[in-house]
């Protein structure tokens, strides 16, 4: 491969990285917002994301059944799937907060490991509940998304780049969601309350904000974003299992740390950066190392970048350097 060849596949690679990056960014927001208000790595968020993907799949199967379609327009169907996934995943996140995390908060334990272990427990529980559901309903837990020609049509772009219609939808939906979230957090009363609680829960409570309500809303927002991202992810990779949330969740969390955990714009940028890192290293590593180290090392590359970045900027790209009070 010559340098010209390598350069010619660059735009396509960057575009694919962008799609992945937007999905990561939306999931990363769920991690970073919960971390902002509770200081907790919500491991169960990857399962909230996966449940969104499963809900989308079921909507496609129920109302998009090719023999008797209730909704024959694939775009409308996708819209319905996104709405259902957002509501379902959001509700799931709120329930998790209500029944697993709130009892811990009420007891006032100072150990940060306790809620994190709970989160891991919730994550296991949701994985296997989904597995039972899939086993009973589909008799297997490897579920396939229904595909539609209208969504898979390939469009030509300049610079020898191609994109599928669903790719455009993914970018559109995520940009809209991210703009919406930025508006919500920065311009609305709820957003102000979320920022207040994440800055100082006790003082916020003194100012007449009910932290429990705000925390619950934060889970709702983060969960809905995760659910939407789940449908988009399912659309992109067409395959969902009860465990398919784990790896994207891990990457999304890495994105959140990369951008500075607790920081909302940071999570978006972190997701986009990680998406690029992953696809670029996946495409170019085999060429640069003569095929000795292939695409399978893209995760290693992503994690090592994270380690390097954290060594020089321990607070992430956008995080604030908070010196610890004694």
């Amino acid at each position: 491969m010559t340098v010209a060849d390598l350069l010619s596949i660059l735009p396509q690679t960057v575009l694919e990285g962008l799609l992945l990056g937007f999905v990561y960014a939306m999931v990363a927001l769920g991690y970073t917002m919960v971390y902002g208000v509770l200081g907790l790595i919500n491991f169960a968020h990857s399962e909230v994301f996966m449940i969104g993907a499963v809900i989308g799949l079921e909507v496609f199967r129920f109302w998009g059944n090719p023999d008797a379609p209730v909704i024959s327009n694939p775009f409308l169907l996708l819209f319905v799937a996104l709405v259902f996934a957002a509501v379902g995943s959001g509700t799931m996140a709120v329930l998790v907060e209500r029944f697993a995390y709130r009892p811990l908060r009420k007891r006032g334990s100072k150990n940060i490991l306790v809620p994190m272990i709970t989160a891991i427990g919730v994550s296991f529980l949701l994985q296997d509940l989904t597995r039972i559901y899939a086993a009973l309903r589909h008799n297997e837990f490897n579920m396939q998304y229904r595909t539609f020609d209208a969504l898979n049509t390939t469009l030509m772009l300049p610079l020898q780049t191609t994109i599928q219609v669903k790719g455009i939808i993914i970018i559109l939906v995520s940009v809209l969601m991210l703009i919406g979230l930025t508006y919500l957090v920065n311009r609305t009363k709820l957003g102000k309350a979320i920022r207040a609680v994440s800055q100082d829960m006790q003082t916020a409570a003194l100012m007449g904000i009910n932290p429990d309500v705000i925390i619950s809303r934060t889970f709702l927002i983060g969960g809905s974003l995760g659910g939407v991202a789940g449908v988009l992810f399912g659309l992109l990779y067409t395959n969902v299992t009860p465990y398919s949330g784990v790896l994207p969740g891990l990457k999304a969390f890495t994105s959140a740390v990369l951008g500075g955990i607790g920081n909302i714009p940071g999570a978006m940028v972190g997701g986009l950066v990680l998406g690029q890192l992953e696809t670029l290293s996946g495409t170019y590593l085999p060429f640069l190392t003569n095929g000795n180290f292939g695409t399978e090392y893209k995760d290693v590359f992503a994690f090592l970048t994270l380690v390097l970045l954290l060594l020089f900027r321990p607070q992430g790209l956008f995080g604030q350097n908070v010196s610890e009070k004694v």
Partner: peptide
């Protein structure tokens, strides 16, 4: 086949009642 389910429940309940 559902050891994670039981395991997850145990973790959650332990953290609530006997952290």
């Amino acid at each position: 086949k559902y050891e994670r389910l039981v395991f997850g429940l145990i973790l959650i309940l332990m953290m609530i009642f006997r952290p």
